[in-house]
């Protein structure tokens, strides 16, 4: 089934009302919160350094274990492979999925099942598998609920944040006042179109 590529706020219309309260699982595992932690350090040269309060980062997990978080992070790196993009940005995919897992038991199970399946092919720990094999595993998962959930979440979470904007060179909200006096026409590698095809710049 084709996943809906729109992020949750677009799907969950306010009119649709809150989702029905999920039944609390009666098992002990359901009661114990699987909490995890994901940590990392920004590279010294990172363009993101100015956006982060410190070079090391940590993400508290409420719906996923540390291992599950790490597997999903690695999986996301294969889905959208940007060798120079920091883990800190991929961690936002984990953060988004962790939130969904904490809110919805079915989502939590989808994620847990997917990670278990990967660990199974990885003889216990998928993270120990070589990158080339991991890549094949990711492709083999296409079409599964796990893949669909992670991909559709990742494509939004990964590219819709200030760190990604800085990395890929999008101005984001910095453009709110306008580029009229800040380089809207600063391209130099082609000639300027003649005045007749363009128009005057209003005086500031």
């Amino acid at each position: 089934m084709q996943s809906h590529p729109l992020p949750d706020p677009v799907l969950a219309t306010p009119e649709a009302g809150p989702a029905p309260a999920a039944p609390i699982a009666a098992t002990r595992r359901g009661v114990l919160k699987a909490t995890g932690l994901l940590t990392g350090t920004l590279a010294l040269s990172s363009v993101l350094a100015s956006l982060a309060p410190s070079r090391s980062w940590a993400l508290d997990l409420k719906g996923l274990s540390s291992h599950q978080g790490a597997v999903i992070l690695a999986f996301s790196r294969h889905l959208y492979p940007h060798p120079h993009l920091e883990d800190a940005v991929y961690a936002l995919v984990v953060k988004e999925l962790d939130g969904k897992a904490a809110a919805t038991p079915a989502t939590k199970k989808t994620l847990a099942d997917g990670v278990a399946r990967l660990d199974h092919v990885g003889s216990g720990d998928w993270l120990k598998r070589g990158a080339a094999l991991q890549e094949i595993d990711v492709a083999a998962m296409e079409g599964t609920p796990f893949f669909t959930l992670v991909r559709s979440t990742a494509v939004v979470a990964l590219y819709n944040n200030d760190m990604a904007f800085a990395h890929f060179g999008y101005g984001g909200k910095k453009g709110n006042d306008g580029y009229l006096y800040k380089g809207f026409n600063d391209l130099k590698w082609l000639p300027n179109p003649p005045a007749a095809a363009s128009g005057p710049i209003p005086k500031g």
């Binding site: 026409n185 600063d186 391209l187 179109p193 095809a197 128009g199 005057p200």
Partner: peptide, 20 residues
């Protein structure tokens, strides 16, 4: 723009590429 004496808008970078 370009009607009733209103000038055209100044072209941005994306336009420069298209125009070229």
């Amino acid at each position: 723009t370009r009607t009733h004496g209103m000038p055209g808008l100044p072209g941005n970078n994306n336009f420069k590429v298209m125009y070229g």
